[in-house]
Design a protein around this nucleic acid. Structure first.
Lengths: 201, 201, 201, 201
DNA sequence: AATGAATGAGGCTTCATTCAT
DNA sequence: CATGAATGAAGCCTCATTCAT
């Protein structure tokens, strides 16, 4: 009578979807100063419904982060076998930035550090990126003094950087991704100070 | 008897300093979600004292931004005549990042968009950076498809990037500044998409 | 499913009533220096509840004024056809004073000058009073050098006047209404200086 | 060495005067919502000075009330021997209203109920008015069912009444004083309900 | 299960009053 | 004595969260 994992919830998992989407839109439009009501209003549901789906506002954020990271994992895993590993890594970074440009929730990335599921999915992403970086480095597409963690940290910079403009052209991030990626190439590389940090978080 | 501009107030400008410092520390530690009480508690003064010194929380932020930007202007202007313009630009970016590493208030840079004094001082900074970039480009130290605005936007990235780590090694930003600066060099530069955006703000 | 104007909210319009009543009592007891907490405490609800019902303290005041003025309009309109117009006007003033004696919020009348609905309802009251005054003057029940605005201004005096006593007998206002109304009669009238002011507000 | 009552304070009783005047002007201009800084700013002294002269904001108010009441006493006593007692009473009411029109502090009248000196001076005023009323009634200038307390209560009405207009013509109060005084005359007087209340406060 | 009303902690700001200079 | 900085209670309002309907 009490289905082990979770019963198929009626069609009302639809609300969960509505809420997440609404939240992404709101965060993307207004930055971090978004209230629960803002979200429910956009989702067209009542406040109570919000808390039926997410025990906490932070839980919603964790869900968003989880979903975004999940999407990135898919991208990274699909590029694992790319014929040109350098191209593959660049593709990954491009898709990653494009995705985050749509709904800018990068400022949320540091959130959810204490959510177990977020941590887990994040680790899986880091592994997947590690594969891409290793292959790219092996073929000489990127300099050999950088590692997966470096790429992970730099990954959000293109989106972040354009936010200093009040209304940035929608594709501006491509410009800064190009510059940063050029910095990752072996040509004209100057030796790096310090060493690659260990893992994220 | 009626000092023209404003007399130097007693030694109780000490409190102003305490408040600014406390605010920098708090912002640096907790990000933008810092309350006035947080600040006064750390400064060790009463709430009312805060508002004697800053009519508004936003005024405090404007003061902090103004002071930081001011410091950057000094740095940039001192490097205007650097014998090696490429080195001069890199020095500027290094000092800028080092300064901001102490108290990271870069996210405040977007604040104060409506504070006249902040806007003015910001413009002066942008001009000063423009000089450095132009000279560096003229000597071939940086690629010729980038401009001052590009540099301005990328300037905060090294600091920002390391913040994804919960306790980053104190000098890690140098690593990412090096990578990004390598991306600005002409060697191995791939053509950039789009065009340099117009001014900031 | 989507009630056009606004559905009658549950029985929790009871709280709205509680709040308005509490506010009237507080204002009546303490004058204009009444805080939101004072009101909620008397109403027995939490602070948040106040703001669920009234976006602003001023909104509450507008609601109170609106309701009182509305009640006065009803009275005035019911007396429009009074067989004895002089009696009708006196009745109006009597009912008006009696009503305000219960909760003296006359000082609130100046409030809400910027609330559109208050202004509108106030204008309707003034028109209704105008009718009563015109009829009374036509029959010689009141002197012919006074007008509606005069009556409107004098209307609150009986209540106001008794407030200089710390605990006035409950019917004392009747005494001063009588005196003032005698002053409005043609018998023994001395010519008035100045002219009737134009409209209120 | 410690002069019995109070030594002649240097020329610095001047500040006391400055403060009272400034306060009257501020109250008159802005109503009851006047802060201590508002007053000191207009007086051109520092906040500390305020509290050297008045232990409390309420003390200042008591002082203002006391001074105004004192002025009224003078007027009343000067009219005690008026040849035409009816004219005398009307003169008193006229001067009283004119005086309060200059600095409208009538709303302060209820203040100072607990200040001993205010109470005392107020009682003296009431006695003086009593004399005027008694004489006027004796000569038939005013109806014989009213007394001093009635007049005292009605005294402020002309000023108060015009305040419902946002910017009343400066002499409008004369109009309402005329009406009210007509109500006090014997001609056309209708019997009054209730009885004259006992003393004020 | 959905709704939206109620709650109360917490945020910014004002202001009377005290106190060091 | 005067000054003006410091204090902290209190005011209005927001918002995440709980709960009755």
């Amino acid at each position: 009578m009490d289905p082990v994992d979770r019963p198929l919830r009626v069609d009302a998992a639809r609300n969960r979807e509505l809420l997440i989407t609404a939240a992404e839109e709101e965060f993307s439009a207004k930055g971090s100063e978004v209230s629960v009501v803002d979200i429910t209003r956009r989702a067209g549901v009542a406040k109570g419904t919000f808390f039926r789906h997410f025990a906490t506002k932070d839980d919603l954020i964790a869900a968003i982060v989880g979903r975004h990271v999940g999407a990135l994992i898919d991208v990274a895993e699909n590029l694992r076998e790319a014929t040109d590993p350098g191209e593959g890594l660049l593709d990954f970074l491009t898709v990653a930035a494009a995705q985050r440009q749509q709904y800018d929730v990068s400022f949320l990335l540091r959130a959810g550090d204490d959510d177990e599921r977020v941590v887990e999915v994040r680790n899986r992403l880091y592994e997947a990126i590690g594969v891409l970086v290793d292959r790219a480095r092996a073929t000489g597409a990127v300099r050999d003094d950088i590692g997966a963690t470096d790429v992970i940290l730099l990954m959000c910079a293109p989106n972040h950087v354009v936010e200093y403009l009040s209304s940035p052209p929608p594709d501006l991030w491509k410009r800064y991704l190009a510059i940063i990626f050029d910095g990752l190439r072996p040509e004209g590389a100057h030796p790096l100070p310090g060493r690659e940090p260990v893992a994220v978080q």
